[in-house]
C-alpha cells in the first residue's frame, strides 16, 4: 500500500534524487526529443540513404543514448532491476510489435531472406524492428527513471513552475497544481480508507470475488457507500482547514520547498547537451564522423 502512495518513488540519497525537479523534467523532454532525431529506416531509404550507413548512424546514436541512460541509472542508485521492472508491461508490448514489424515489413526491401505468402523476412525488416524496439524501450525508461527518483509532489511543483509562463495568458496554473497536489495527497488516504472499510466488511463476511459481474458490482456497495461519504466528509474538512488558515490562492504565497538549481543540474545539463550533440553528429554526419566509421566498418567486413 505504502508504495502506491509514493507513486513509483524509490527512496535513496543520490545526486539524481537531489536534482531540481524542473531540471529533471526538462532533461527528460530533451532525452525524448533526442530519441526522435534518428529517422525511421523507411524515411532514410526514401531520402536516398544507404542501409549500411543507416545501421551505423542509428547504432551509434542509440548506443550513446543507452550509455547515457545507464550512467544516469548508476548515479541514481536505483537498482537496474527496479527500473526494468517498472517498464515490464511496456516491454511485452514492444516485443510483440517488433515481431509483427519484422514479419510484415511493408517498405521497399532489397535484402530479402525468405517469403511465405504475406510474411517476408528481410534485413530491412529486421533493422527497423530493432530500431523501433530500442527506441520505444529507451522512451519508457527515461520517464521511468524520473518517477523513480522524484516524488509526485516534487513533480507537481516542477510542472507548476515550468508552466508558470502560461499565467500570462490567464491560465490558473497554480490552482491546477494545487488540485493535482491535493489529488495526489488524497490517493494514498483513499487507498488506506478503502482497505479499512474492505476489512471491516470482510469481518462481517462480505464476499468480493464471488459470482458474476452483477453480483460483484453489488458486493462493492458496502465499500463504495462508506468510501463516498468519507470522501465528502474529508473534502469538507480539508476545505474548512484551508479556509481557516486563510488560503487564498496564488497571490503572494511563498513556498515551503523552494526549488533551487544547483551545480548538479549544471553538470547534468553539460552531459545531456554533449549527448544531444553526439546524436546530432552521428545522424547528420557532421565532420564526416559517421561516414568515416561506416567506411572503416566496410573495410573490416
Amino acid at each position: 500500500m505504502r508504495d502506491v502512495s509514493m507513486g513509483q518513488y524509490y527512496p535513496t540519497k543520490s545526486p539524481v534524487h537531489k536534482m531540481d525537479a524542473r531540471a529533471k523534467l526538462v532533461f527528460v523532454i530533451l532525452y525524448i526529443v533526442m530519441l526522435f532525431l534518428v529517422p525511421s529506416l523507411d524515411n532514410y531509404l526514401g531520402g536516398g540513404g544507404r542501409l549500411g550507413e543507416y545501421m551505423v548512424k542509428s547504432g551509434l546514436s542509440f548506443g550513446v543514448v543507452t550509455l547515457f541512460l545507464l550512467v544516469a541509472i548508476i548515479f541514481s542508485k536505483v537498482p537496474l532491476m527496479k527500473v526494468l521492472k517498472s517498464v515490464k508491461a511496456v516491454v511485452y508490448l514492444v516485443i510483440i510489435t517488433a515481431v509483427i514489424m519484422l514479419l510484415f515489413y511493408s517498405g521497399k526491401a532489397n535484402h530479402v531472406y525468405a517469403t511465405w505468402g504475406i510474411i517476408t523476412i528481410s534485413l530491412e525488416g529486421i533493422v527497423s524492428a530493432i530500431v523501433m524496439a530500442v527506441r520505444l524501450f529507451l522512451l519508457v525508461m527515461g520517464p521511468a527513471l524520473l518517477s523513480l527518483t522524484t516524488t509526485p509532489v516534487e513533480l507537481t511543483d516542477g510542472i507548476e513552475s515550468l508552466l508558470s509562463p502560461l499565467k500570462l495568458i490567464k491560465i490558473p496554473v497554480h490552482d491546477i497544481a494545487i488540485i493535482m497536489s491535493i489529488a495526489l495527497r488524497l490517493i494514498p488516504t483513499m487507498i488506506e480508507e478503502t482497505d479499512k472499510i474492505t476489512n471491516a466488511q470482510k469481518a462481517r463476511l462480505a464476499e468480493f470475488d464471488d459470482g458474476n459481474v452483477f453480483k460483484k458490482a453489488k458486493a462493492m456497495i458496502p465499500v463504495l457507500v462508506p468510501l463516498l461519504t468519507s470522501s465528502f466528509r474529508r473534502a469538507d474538512e480539508l476545505a474548512y482547514a484551508m479556509d481557516s488558515r486563510c488560503y487564498g490562492g496564488a497571490k503572494n504565497r511563498t513556498r515551503m520547498r523552494v526549488m533551487r538549481l544547483s551545480y548538479r543540474d549544471a553538470i547534468a545539463l553539460v552531459v545531456i547537451a554533449a549527448v544531444f550533440f553526439a546524436v546530432l553528429t552521428f545522424v547528420y554526419d557532421y565532420f564526416g564522423v559517421a561516414t568515416f566509421i561506416s567506411e572503416w566498418a566496410y573495410t573490416l567486413l
Binding site: I197, A200, I221, P222, V223, V225, P226, T229
Partner: peptide
Amino acid sequence: YPEYQLFD
C-alpha cells in the same frame, strides 16, 4: 471508528 462502515 466503526460508524464509518455503515452503508445500508
